[in-house]
Design a protein around this nucleic acid. Structure first.
Lengths: 172, 172
DNA sequence: TTACACCTGTGTCCAAGACACAGGTCAAGA
DNA sequence: TCTTGACCTGTGTCTTGGACACAGGTGTAA
């Protein structure tokens, strides 16, 4: 039984008499709780290897819901925020969009398995990625081929209907 | 000697006496000249196999400089516009950015060879494309691998620190 | 006249951050 | 105490190449 749990038990045992203590004990719990697991922006970013702007971005779109320091107004990111951002970054690495991530987190927030949604979304995003991969591959080949052909061609000045013969004479 | 050239010669030979004709002959030249080679947005788009919005986009960024019909205010795209857009579309197909294209056209407009610029730019864009290709390839492989692994895994409900085990347990 | 296709200039949207701005807070050093 | 620089906030803007939206004008067949 750690200190916080013991403190909570003390609070509970004084339930009917909490007015004797005012709100000071509750504040103590909040303060201790944040010192145990709450961090500011840069620390959060450091722990997950991203920029502070990325942390702020996910806060802005409400994937992260930090508390607020009453003294200076700074945000305080909890362990839960840490887990959520770690999850979001993993999902981004796997090609899920930010909106996908919000949908998955909604399921999890309701204590429902997000797995069926995740399976559906990965199929969809994988198809998109396959297409983008094919397009980029074709473009890469075109550009490589053009560079090779152009190395054998002279520079020319534009004519009335030809702006750049390199580009306009490229066969594809 | 075609009809328009003959008409221009007639105009020139009446140079000192054009007031006898008013502006009617000049309008006739403009009108005929546009009928010979000027088209409206949709026709321009149709001839190049793009959308009218694409034509309007390139007009907006001043790659195309259409005339204007005095009667109804509609744009009239010349043969030169046609050549420029055809060029721009070819360059886009080769991975040049719109800004690249504007730079190349500036050279051509000054009657200078754009070829050195084109060679420099294709190198740059090819490097970018190679990188994008590599990234997309890696993403594609990750996603494919994830889909395979997940097909052998059960659905699970989130826990306190795990939102979706599929995503979070994916090894990479 | 009506209806519909076409036209214009201008503004906004798209994605996932990165950057900008004006102003507040913190803490070490002089 | 003051200064300075790092850090913080909320909010706005930017990035790219089109696609879309909007309010209003034009053309033409029925």
């Amino acid at each position: 039984m750690d200190f916080l749990s013991g403190l909570e038990l003390m609070i509970d045992s004084y339930q009917g008499k909490e007015q004797s203590f005012g709100v000071n004990l509750n504040l103590a719990i909040v303060r201790l709780s944040c010192e145990e697991g709450c961090v500011k922006v840069i620390e959060m970013a450091r722990r997950l290897g991203v920029t502070a702007d990325t942390v702020r971005f996910y806060t802005r779109i409400k994937i992260l819901k930090p508390g607020k320091n009453k003294t200076n107004g700074y945000r305080e990111y909890s362990e839960s925020d840490y887990n959520r951002l770690r999850f979001a970054l993993s999902a981004r690495q796997l090609g899920f969009s930010v909106e996908d991530i919000q949908e998955i987190l909604n399921h999890a927030d309701k204590k429902k398995s997000p797995c069926p949604t995740v399976r559906r979304l990965i199929e969809h995003r994988l198809n998109e990625t396959e297409q983008r991969f094919a397009e980029t591959q074709q473009l890469r080949e075109r550009m490589q081929q053009a560079a090779i052909e152009w190395s054998q061609k002279p520079d020319k000045v534009p004519t009335g209907d030809m702006i750049c013969h390199l580009i306009e004479e490229f066969a594809q």
